[in-house]
Write a protein that binds this DNA or RNA. Structure first.
Lengths: 133, 133, 133, 133
DNA sequence: TTTT
DNA sequence: TTTT
């Protein structure tokens, strides 16, 4: 009935954009989100959380973000059940992004396409496709 | 750096309380959270989201909630990696509850312990145990 | 850059729907939200938080909610500055609702229009009007 | 029953730390939070939102933040009623911070104390003082 | 497969 | 009284 999640973290790799069979853009990326406390061994742990963006937001994310960038994601947690290749039934959790805010500037690197900074990105008015691909 | 999730949904089963080896109470339950829109077949889908509560909150949840109850959970999303019995490496996502609000009254059932409604519950000041068990 | 608030509370009065000069429906209501702890005198305090809904959401809220109903509101906090009738400049804070979830059933009362329960309500794709009236 | 707000914005001025009569540190600051859309005149508006931090968090904020810094605040919205000097009864809304994350690095300025960057800050286990001062 |  |  209500499902809202807000994350701030860094991309552990460049985002991965694909298209569904019906031509909808969908981008996946993983955020490293440090926990607010240390564990019993005094180590700070990190959650690696999968995020997915659809349509125009998928394109903005893919065109403007890269490994290491700091972002805020506002969305909802979705849990899918699927059949793994070994025949077992598994669950996958991912955050479906409504908004992605860019919180730092792209790092200028040798030979990097400039990145265009771009502005923050909002998801379209949400009517999901959810077409498997 | 920031990780906050708020859910409203119903318990799909009675909560399951256990104790870690060091004696810490930990309660697991699963929430059914309806998505806010229908899919392309016009069906309303539901996310089944695992929630875990620790210590005093674990006990309050176990003592006062049961299958079907409506609650609001405020917490953070945690992603664990573990080795399945078949040797494969898998990920499990669960919400670690900071607060659980009880949003309806316990349904009176034949032969049910009264349930005592209880009040809402807050997590202790958060220093995690995270002891596997 | 990011502004998200989630409240659960009860309406302290029936919602108040009006129309802007341009004909946009806008509904105001106030939520009583109990604080999670007691103050130094051992009393539980309550925040009375103004909420505003626009357009279709304004109508759904006005048609289905009434004093005492329990709701969850998901929105953003807006702070307006205005000139009071005594000439002083004042600030008003209100939550602009994106979603309003109905968390209990309407209480049947003598002579009450039935209320139709209705379903939860989502704000339209957000392009604000914000026309004063 | 539930009251959670998450903001990302910039301090419009240096934070203001004081002590209550009982010696509790309390720091006030105002965040500029841009709205996610433009108004009918095509202008981007901004909400100026008051935030208050108590105790250790008050000190961390006062010692490490300054005008222009970008932060994420996780807390709850509190609405106080007070009597203005002109005898009128007024309402003041402010966000009581549980967590403040520092999202950029302090700007090095001529003659500025280095700022020490510091780490993010969490509120103590929340038992409010709420002593007027 | 993990980010600063 | 307003930030980039």
């Amino acid at each position: 009935m209500l499902n809202r999640i807000i994350l701030i973290g860094r991309l552990v790799a460049d985002p991965d954009m694909r298209y569904t069979q019906s031509g909808t853009a969908v981008t996946h990326f993983t955020l490293a989100v440090d926990r607010p406390f240390t564990n019993q061994q005094g180590e700070r742990e990190t959650d690696f959380i999968d995020v997915v963006a659809w349509r125009k937001l998928a394109e903005t994310v893919a065109n403007n973000l890269s490994k290491g960038r700091l972002v805020a994601v506002d969305g909802r947690l979705q849990v899918r059940t699927y059949d793994a290749s070994d025949g077992t039934r598994r669950k996958a959790a991912e955050v479906v992004a409504d908004t992605v805010r860019f919180l730092d500037s792209p790092r200028r690197q040798e030979g990097a396409r400039e990145g265009a900074a771009g502005d923050d990105a909002e998801a379209a008015p949400l009517t999901e496709d959810d077409v498997p691909f």
